[in-house]
Each structure stands twice: as structure tokens, then as C-alpha cells.
Design a protein around this nucleic acid. Structure first.
Ligand SMILES: NC(=O)c1ccc[n+]([C@@H]2O[C@H](COP(=O)([O-])OP(=O)(O)OC[C@H]3O[C@@H](n4cnc5c(N)ncnc54)[C@H](O)[C@@H]3O)[C@@H](O)[C@H]2O)c1
Ligand SMILES: NC(=O)c1ccc[n+]([C@@H]2O[C@H](COP(=O)([O-])OP(=O)(O)OC[C@H]3O[C@@H](n4cnc5c(N)ncnc54)[C@H](O)[C@@H]3O)[C@@H](O)[C@H]2O)c1
Lengths: 213, 213
DNA sequence: CTAGAATTGTGAAAAGTTGCACGAATGGTT
DNA sequence: AACCATTCGTGCAACTTTTCACAATTCTAG
């Protein structure tokens, strides 16, 4: 039970948390592994087994108390505090991210926005002033910021990631469609819509779109 | 070899394609499973085994001819045509997506943008006119559009997905942080930055951010 | 032409993940 | 109190995915 917990299990916890929060908002107070599994398209056994890595949170016959389980998951995922994050690149995507309303309730706060375009620097995005990229390392170091969202053009992604690492960042969510080289100890997650779309076209029928050809 | 190919293998092909395209743009003409694996953080054996599901694309001693392999992957993933896609929701995220420059070169074309806000309808986003959501089903049906990006508020996501399905859409990339209920045969991919961020906080040190507390 | 280095494709082994099925506990109902 | 319907946590079996390791092939260079 105290052994290393598989990454794949950790990866599902935020989904459980999201679904539980949704149920709580609807006023529900308890749920079962079966109900949760149905909503998520995951087997109930898997949910029970995943949770059992961390303790015994449920009650036979009853299931799980939603608020209690939410608290436990928040604690496990280190979401019992609010993480300050930086957004790098204040273009279309950077603006969208800075305006995203989902961060606050889920454990994150956009504390910094950086760009290298003098036109953009000084502008305020959703209450946060855009700072120049040259100040980035100093700002993030001082505040011990650990996580950044990378939304700069592809060509600038690697060098910007290098700067982030120099600034002490250890978790990056990158939107640039390239694989970053980072030292061990730095986590990277990627978000590339085209990769997800291309995963789906494999299963689509290519002739349906142009029926006459 | 003609058996069902695992989803997990299909999921890696777009990453191979992306890395190969990157190499091709740098002027390189051949590569090896080893080099590709290094860049992607994947073992060379895995790359060879994945590709071997579809044929023998390499040459012993030499490796893979990049352009040839790109062609093969495009063909496998049905990217030898351009897929017309619809964006639903022309808010911050919808705008960012509509302006994304990575679609054209990688097999997709933003053909439609829909919103329900009369203020937004009629506006032009990156050359595409925003249409009213009430026209959506008719438009998409007529043009046999198969894929949509869903960027409406969370509360509207399920009903909008239902409309998309009624319109004949069979592949959805949803940015709303909820699990959609869809009939079998409809593919859904999700993109929720917070889920990815919460995956990373598990491994972060919660005391580092506020060293004095 | 030959030797040696590089690299593929793949069967078999190892490692990792999921699903099954059941004892044990709980709460509601008669 | 006895019974029944639920539901958890978990050992074990089944399945999936990754890695290993090697014969076969190709290219280069002497
Ligand atoms: N727009 C989307 O929906 C979308 C979707 C997926 C991925 N992406 C990726 O996200 C990234 C940004 O996309 P975008 O549409 O916002 O582009 P954009 O051009 O609108 O924005 C990029 C911003 O980064 C700034 N910038 C450029 N170089 C910089 C540097 N060295 N340091 C700091 N800032 C710098 C620019 O001034 C600009 O404001 C790109 O890599 C793109 O491929 C975008
Ligand atoms: N902004 C981000 O970076 C971001 C990131 C991840 C996820 N998301 C999610 O993406 C979605 C959109 O986010 P956003 O920031 O663009 O929000 P937004 O409010 O800026 O945009 C939403 C748009 O959808 C339109 N809309 C509302 N109801 C509609 C309906 N029934 N049919 C059609 N259009 C409708 C609105 O008029 C608006 O233009 C949300 O679910 C959000 O949680 C946003």
C-alpha cells in the first residue's frame, strides 16, 4: 500500500475529482464506485482499486461521502493550497487561458503573464499586467512559482522552456506542438489539438466527407 | 498483422508524424527508430513495433526515409485529404482556435464557426463568418462535416454535443470540463488544462511555494 | 570483395493494468 | 431479529503493453 503509485492512477484522480465536484454542485451527498464509473466510462472495480492505493474512503453498502472524498483527493493531489502559475505568451491562446474561469475553483491562480512584444507589455489581461519576458526569471524565482503554461510560438518554445527552468519552474503545460528537452525532475504535459484530432481521423471514414468524389 | 490495432498505438502515430515533419523541415531525409525515440522519449523498440502493425517501412542499416514514412502515416491516419471542421462557441477559446495556424498544414480546415450570441453572429473570425447555432444542424448535415471542436460554456456543452450528433458529427474534441454522454460510434477527446495541471501537482512539493508558512 | 557497424522487424519474456468474484460490512424493511 | 439489497476492498487471473535480444539485411570503407 505504501509502494510507488502508478502514474496512470494519478492521472485518473483529477477526473474523479472533477466528477465528484460536479455531483456535489448538483446537491448530491453520496455516490458509489458504480455511479462514478458510469459517468466516467470507467469500471467500478478500477475506481475502487485506484482509491484503495491511498486508504479506505468508502463504506460497504453506502458508497462514498462525496465531500469527504473530494477533500481526500484534494489532499492527495496537493490541491489544499492555491498554486500560483505563470502564462508565457499573451497571444490568442494566452488571452484565452488568462480569462479561463475554471482555475480559481480548482486550485490555481494566474499570477503572472509574460510576453516579449513591447506592444503587449503593460496591457492588463483579466486583471493581470503583462510583464516583459526579460523580467521573467527574476519574478518567478523570487516568488517560488513552480508551474507555467507555455503559449509562445513554436520556434520560441524551447528557448522559453529553458528560461522557465532557469527560473525554477518544475512543471510545464506546453501548447507548442514540439517535444521539449528538459532536465530530469521537470514535468511536462502537452496539449496539441491536432494530435487529438488526428487520433480520431483514423477511425473516420474518409469518403464520407466528399461523397461525390 | 491484419488484427485489430490497439488504440494506444494509433494514439502515438500523430506524435511520430509531428516529429518526422519537424525533421523534414530541418532538411533531414532519413532517421532511425533510435533517433525518433530519443526526441519523443519513447523506446526505439516501441516505435518499430508500432510501425510494424502497418507494414515494413524501414531498411536495415539505414533506418526510415522521412518523407516516405510521413506519407505512410498520413495515409494510415486518413490525412491524405483535408478535413473540414466546425468550431462551436466563438468566445475566447473559440477565437484562439479559429486563429490557430497549425491546422492547414496538418490536415484540417476551419470551415464553420457557430455561436448563439446575436452580437457575435455575423462577425468574421480569421476569414470565417460566425453563424447562428440554430443554423448549425442544417449546415453541417449538408456538408457532411464529421468533426467539431466544442468551446461553449460548460452548462451548454451536453446540449450542444447532442445537436452536433444530430448534425451527423462523429468526432468531437471538447474543451468543456465535463464528461459528455454520446452514442456509440461517436468519438470524443477531451482537453482540460486543469486536469493536466492537477496531474502534475501530485509530484510537486507543496511547501516550496510558500517557504515561510 | 570482405569486414564491420548500423539498424530493422519480430518472437518471446517481462512488466504493467484491468476485470472478476467474493467475503465482509452496512443500512433498510418486514 | 432476520433477511435482503448494496457496496466496498482485494487476491488472483486475464489481458495488454513494453522491453529484450537476435537473425537478417544494408551500407561504408578499406
Ligand atoms: N491558438 C490556438 O488555439 C492554439 C491551439 C493549440 C496550440 N497553440 C500553440 O500555442 C502557441 C501560441 O499560439 P497563439 O495562437 O496564441 O499565437 P500568437 O501568435 O497569437 O501568440 C504568441 C504570443 O507569444 C509572444 N511571443 C513570441 N515570442 C516570444 C518569446 N520569445 N517570449 C515571450 N513571448 C513571445 C508573441 O508576442 C505573442 O503575443 C503556438 O505554439 C501555437 O502553436 C495555439
Ligand atoms: N479559455 C480557456 O483557455 C479555456 C481553457 C480550457 C477550457 N475552456 C472551456 O472552454 C469553454 C469556453 O471557454 P471560453 O473561455 O471561450 O468561454 P467564453 O464565455 O469566452 O465563450 C463561450 C462562447 O460560447 C457561446 N455560447 C454560449 N452558449 C452557447 C450555446 N448554447 N450555443 C452556442 N454558443 C454558445 C457564448 O456566446 C460565447 O461566445 C468553457 O467550457 C471553458 O470551460 C476554456
Amino acid at each position: 500500500m505504501a509502494t510507488e503509485i502508478p502514474d496512470i492512477v494519478i492521472g485518473r484522480l483529477p477526473l474523479y475529482l472533477r466528477a465528484l465536484t460536479h455531483l456535489a454542485e448538483k446537491g448530491q451527498t453520496t455516490t458509489s464506485s458504480h455511479e462514478l464509473g458510469q459517468r466516467l466510462g470507467i469500471s467500478s472495480a478500477q475506481i475502487r482499486k485506484d482509491l484503495s492505493h491511498f486508504g479506505e474512503f468508502g463504506k460497504q453498502g453506502t458508497g462514498y461521502h462525496i465531500n469527504f472524498l473530494i477533500d481526500q483527493l484534494r489532499h492527495i493531489l496537493h490541491l489544499n493550497l492555491v498554486w500560483s502559475i505563470a502564462i508565457v505568451g499573451a497571444g490568442y491562446l494566452g488571452h484565452a487561458l488568462a480569462h479561463y474561469q475554471g482555475f480559481e475553483q480548482r486550485g490555481f491562480r494566474v499570477a503572472w503573464v509574460f510576453d516579449n512584444d513591447p506592444q503587449r507589455v503593460g496591457e492588463t489581461v483579466n486583471g493581470v499586467e503583462v510583464r516583459h519576458i526579460n523580467d521573467m526569471i527574476a519574478c518567478l524565482r523570487e516568488e517560488h512559482v513552480q508551474m507555467a503554461l507555455l503559449a509562445v510560438p513554436t520556434e520560441a518554445a524551447q528557448e522559453t522552456a529553458d528560461m522557465l527552468i532557469e527560473a525554477g519552474i518544475t512543471a510545464i503545460l506546453s501548447y507548442a506542438p514540439i517535444n521539449l528537452k528538459v532536465p530530469v525532475g521537470v514535468q511536462v504535459q502537452y496539449s496539441d489539438p491536432v494530435v487529438q484530432m488526428q487520433r480520431m481521423t483514423y477511425y473516420l471514414n474518409a469518403t464520407a466527407q466528399y461523397p461525390e468524389t
